[in-house]
């Protein structure tokens, strides 16, 4: 099975260094293979250089594809992180 999340980035600075670092660390905590897609670019969610290369900015739609034994819990936590915790960092 594969779980796919479609999320709009709401935090002011998108996935740049600071939020990207929080995001990558979260993804690294799971065993699943996790990919992030923005437009036609795909990145390994556990590699910060690739995540930064997406240039995912505030207001952009991203797709997150999670594949592995812990994908359900991973999907839940990543969704919460991007939608709730990252916008908190702005403040």
């Amino acid at each position: 099975m594969v779980t796919i999340l479609s999320i709009k980035l709401k935090n002011r600075s998108g996935l740049h260094a600071r939020p990207a670092s929080v995001f990558v660390r979260k993804c690294k905590a799971f065993k699943s293979i996790i990919k992030v897609q923005k437009g036609d670019k795909v990145a390994d969610a556990k590699n910060i250089l690739q995540v930064l290369s997406l240039g995912a900015d505030c207001g952009d739609e991203i797709l997150i594809e999670i594949n592995g034994e812990d994908e359900k819990i991973a999907a839940e936590e990543i969704k919460k992180l991007v939608e709730e915790e990252l916008p908190e960092i702005d403040k």
Binding site: G14, L49, L52, S53, G55, A56, D57
Partner: peptide, 14 residues
């Protein structure tokens, strides 16, 4: 490699 892909990403912060 990543310098170029950061440049292409088009975000001023990146």
């Amino acid at each position: 490699k990543y310098r170029d892909s950061f440049r292409e990403s088009g975000s001023s912060l990146i």
